[in-house]
Design a protein around this nucleic acid. Sequence first.
RNA 1: GCGGGCGUGGCGGAACUGGUAGACGCAGCGGACUCAAAAUCCGCCGUCCUCACGGAUAUGUCGGUUCGAGUCCGACCGCCCGCACCA
Length: 889
Amino acid sequence: MTEHAPERAQERTQDRYNAREAEPKWQKTWAERGIFRTRNDDPRPKFFVMEMFPYPSGRIHIGHGRNYVMGDVLARYKRMQGFNVLHPMGWDAFGLPAENAAIERGIHPKSWTYENIASMREQLQLLGLSLDWNREIATCDPSYYVEQQRIFLDFLDNGLAYRKESEVNWDPVDNTVLANEQVIDGRGWRSGAIVERRKLSQWFLRITQFAQELLDAIDTLDRWPDKVRLMQRNWIGRSEGLEVLFEFAKGSLAAGKLPADTKAVKVYTTRPDTLFGASFLALSPDHPLAKHLAGTDGQLSAFIAECKRGGTSAEEIETQEKKGYATGLSVVHPLDATRTVPVYVANFVLMDYGTGAIFGCPAHDQRDFDFATKYGLAITPVVLPEGADPATFSVAEGPYDGDGTLFNSAFLDGMSVPEAKEAVARQLERFRVAGEPQGTRRVNFRLRDWGISRQRYWGCPIPVIHCDDCGPVGVPRDQLPVELPDDVTFDRPGNPLDRAKAWRDVPCPKCGKPARRETDTMDTFVDSSWYFLRYASDNVEKPLDKAAVSHWLPVDQYIGGIEHAILHLLYSRFFTRALKHCGRVDLEEPFAGLFTQGMIVHETYKDTEGKWLFPEEVKLLGNGKAVRISDGTPVTVSPPEKMSKSKRNVVAPEVVADTYGVDCARWFMLSDTPPERDSEWTQGGIEGAWRFVQRVWRLVNEAVELGAKPGAPRPATFGEQALGLRRAAHGLVATVAEDIERLRFNVAVAHVHEFANAFGSAIAAARSAPEVPEDLAFALREAAEMLTGVVAPMTPHLAEECWGVLGHGSLVAEASWPATEADLLRRDTVTLPIQINGKKRDDIVVPREATPAEVEAAVLALESVQRALDGRAPKRIIVVPQRIVNVVA
RNA sequence: GCGGGCGUGGCGGAACUGGUAGACGCAGCGGACUCAAAAUCCGCCGUCCUCACGGAUAUGUCGGUUCGAGUCCGACCGCCCGCACCA
């Protein structure tokens, strides 16, 4: 250190970066100049980045900010790279909480929602996000949902929307339909009444029509996380199998219990190869035949009722014992007319998958095994694992569901499982039962059609009028939107729309007779299934603009939580295809790139009475101990959890902005933890970010002070010191660009830190020189410019302030990403680690382009290598150019 | 039960496609500056042996492939996520 350095350093420390002043100033400037407003006619290449829009629940905490900040970094970076960036924001504004607020606090859902939007918008703006607020949308706004109603009518016209009976959770005390999450332990969350299953006629969207397409196209989504793709594949759940008709045995037909036209029952199986192992047939309790039989069989009727009572929760289903009821009927084995198989009604057979009936092969299926064991049915193995002895092979311990060779199976004996499947299919396709092929190949999907009816007020009205004569009639398009009536009450349970007579009772659009509006509203997942298409249009008159959609879509980078991996993303994919089917867009996949970010978690604190405490009420003492600030009583510290209001482990963005500045919060959220993982918010972390923000400010100021003036000529040659700094700076620009492109923000941050260390040393060296040489002066200014440019997407306010210090009159938000020189990114020499028998023993510096032979010669000359070889010739030398050398002694 | 993922210092984590394990940060320790503190700057920081030079060992455990394994393969242990009787 030099003598004059300290005073200068001190002088500098007086000059702190003042985020509190700078941040509002730049936010105002950006807004005034409208620099984030996106135009559709901009000729530059487009880039569409968006984060999943929030539900306007009230206030946000800092944990909500992470994905917006990540998207913002990408948006700002891409702008600097010369793209016309679309980065919009909106509100997923319909939904149950607004109605609950109305019930609990008497606030109208509309005012509750719009007030929340206003305060959350303010909070988001505080984060300095580069959003085009001109394209802001709220799904509860008629200007938004009018188009959704048009889409619904298009779906109706194209057979993609239809009505069918479907079960809902019915609260018999509140007389209302409950969402699944409102059913707790089989009881209504508010009334505590035991929930019933009740059938209602509801609207469905035919997503299953696209099941195969949606499955196939997953392969093309190469910028989606594998995990999400896998979850979607499993959800769609394709299986290939065979539908098989089992004819009733003569005695069963004669018994008079069956309907007159019923000669056979159809089952679905993916294991036709195991047909010879069949020992029973089971019908779902909801199967029409089971219901028919129950008409004359009181015990069966009681059994079916018992099955219905069972809960629907995962645990209940898992622990539920397999139960069946023997109907006394039997069917003939399709491949062996001499055998018959008893028919049961069984609680584990689902009506809405396959045909609602199965054949049971206990030796090769766990469920069938459990069932057969309980009812003493035969368990005949028909697939022999490789290497097993047919004489001794036993499934007494449990079923075998692996590959093998068929045995005990007549003409299938000796075949492999796939061969046997094929042979059975071919055989049964030839056989006829009542004029039909006995076997039909069939692909099944687990995916079900999407029920969108919700018996709720605060949702998009379904634009349909029910007429006694004409049935459901779509509201004519020129009468859209069907707006929600404001004049409703929430003092009674049930859907207020049912009671809004003035709104509800309208003439039929077809025949003019008195009719009534559909009072169900749409699932809020519908709202979010096309909002990304709405953003493309900057025109309110054309909310879904085919040309604009073709221009902007697909979304280049979509960022959101993993909790939407299946439903929201699958529904959006379906919507896009369905809209294409209706001729509304030319697009199949809406999201080219998907990123699922982790949550922000925080420790939780409890006082001595077990009450949750806010972080600001707690003083941490280190060593895991803490006390309450107000009275010094001990506080229990528990491991980090997702930030939530109820546990009070939240940090308000305003407080962070006020104490440290928003850029610190942004920097911290990007640091250390990989973005897809959960990240812990800590005091130490935010303070570290604060120190670094100050450090960047100091480095830039010092470099400006010591460096060349703006526009100074580029020296013809650079000395070692200047060259070293230039290499570091140019390298930084290149590596951070790559890090941001790959959304590896934590690595980008590390690289900036690394550069700051090198930059600091260069500045110290310049300071200690009697006079700063011209080449170093140039390099210092260049490095300061580059550092400012590189941090601009991450800490945009700080960067604007630095940009000013550097003497620019423009905005860094509108500047270009710093240009690098290829020469500086390439090294002329490389340092190769030298291994002897795989252990690193030495280093060697060689020209970058050195041939393996040259490297080998140089390595053999090394003293360390000579010593290790001890006069012997090496067995082998592996030279990996520009990487490593391994000498095998 | 089925499917998938992950185990690296006190902590968060880095390590491109099999090529120097522990970048960078946090915490900690030591030092400089200061009357003092804060801020800042410098140094140390996996474990063991050694005054040191240096060496041994080390990415959950065990084994394998390879000149070379955190990375690939197999088995096991632990944790996390998704699905829920889908025939």
